[in-house]
């Protein structure tokens, strides 16, 4: 090991004096505050509204205004929760000499990287993030730092996400080729649903979307932040007898519903899943999807490595996912990478 590498190890050990991994999650000691804890805690910084990062029952929550709105919509907070909404770049003193600010993560509406500064050091916990363009949220911002804490959901060379436009194009082509069938696209309610709708509009799909009720509240929330998805209707408000209405059209629902009893109300349904996992054939078959759209709201292999390098961080901590592969690849780039083995992250949610 050369001299500079040794120096880096030293810096890491200083960061480790004030950041540590606990059963509840990543913990900042001087501020007595957790990042995306999996259990109820006194003080929590929440990077974004997905259920495996935002949970209910915390005493005090620091998050972007959008994330706080999402948490309220999902009942993760209540009247007793002490909420601090911080817009991107706004700084706050967490006490104990720690300053917190948020930088956009490009993952979903309101998603943020938590930037913690203490004693002249900067640690960035990126939460979930992506670098591909997304018309429904602010783009990822590179924040130079001493320690970059990253996810590794799609950290294998087999994950090279195609541009969303090509996947949407595939869907539109199929709808033209099979006008008698109802395309039912399984999407997560938060983020994926709205990104897919918006991209379809940009690609020229003009008909109203038909939505499952579970997608309603979050779509309305996106609209309250200025997003425009054009016309959409709830499937539940259309008479059962009107099966033909959906023929050749698009229905969006949570992924579990595409092959459920619910989907029988449509004329000749064609179950489709939109998810980053659809890259893997066996996974797509497992969901019994007849069409697999590779749509991911996470960084793919190339973007993970590129991002870690761009932050200039000599140390990268990896929270969850395919930790081993990313750790190995970053070390080959001369970056001190290590897995944190955080528990409680759900593979299914993106």
């Amino acid at each position: 090991m050369n001299a500079s590498a040794e120096k880096k190890v030293q810096i890491s050990s200083i960061a480790e004096t004030w950041m540590e991994v606990r059963a509840q999650g990543l913990y900042c000691k001087p501020a007595d505050c957790y990042i995306d804890p999996v259990e109820p805690v006194g003080r929590a910084i929440i990077t974004h509204g997905h259920a495996d990062h935002a949970r209910s029952g915390h005493g005090e929550v620091f998050a972007t205004p959008e994330t706080i709105a999402i948490m309220r919509t999902r009942y993760y907070t209540n009247d007793d929760t002490h909420e601090t909404a911080l817009a991107y770049d706004a700084r706050t003193d967490l006490g104990g000499g720690v300053t917190l600010w948020f930088a956009s993560a490009g993952h979903i509406l309101g998603s943020a990287q938590a930037v913690l500064e203490y004693n002249g050091q900067r640690v960035v916990a990126a939460g979930d993030f992506k670098r591909h363009p997304d018309p429904t949220c602010a783009p990822f911002e590179v924040v130079p730092c001493d320690v970059f804490i990253t996810e590794a959901t799609f950290a294998l060379p087999v994950f090279q996400h195609p541009p969303l436009e090509s996947e949407v194009d595939k869907l539109m082509r199929s709808m033209r080729a099979l006008p008698g069938r109802t395309h039912i696209v399984g999407v997560y309610a938060l983020g994926k649903c709205q990104r897919v709708m918006k991209t379809l509009r940009l690609a020229g799909y003009a008909h109203p979307f038909y939505l499952h009720g579970a997608l309603k509240r979050l779509t309305e929330l996106y609209e309250s932040y200025g997003q425009d998805f054009g016309a959409w209707e709830l499937v539940s408000e259309i008479p059962r007898a009107d099966k033909g209405r959906f023929r050749g059209k698009l229905v969006l629902c949570p992924p579990a519903q595409i092959n459920d009893r619910w989907s029988r109300r449509f004329a000749d349904p064609l179950p489709t899943v939109a998810s980053g996992w659809m890259q893997i054939r066996a996974r797509a078959r497992q969901k019994r999807a007849e069409m697999a759209l590779v749509v991911s709201d996470h960084a793919d292999w190339g973007d993970l490595i590129r991002t870690c390098k761009e932050t200039g961080a000599p140390h990268v901590w990896i929270t969850h996912g395919r930790v081993e592969a990313l750790e190995y690849a970053l070390r080959r780039e001369g970056i001190n990478a290590k897995g944190l083995n955080l528990i409680g992250r759900d593979e299914g949610v993106e």
Partner: peptide
């Protein structure tokens, strides 16, 4: 491709 990364990938796929 690095053989270790290839093996991890193949095991996963």
């Amino acid at each position: 491709m690095d053989p270790f990364l290839f093996d991890l990938s193949r095991d996963y796929v």
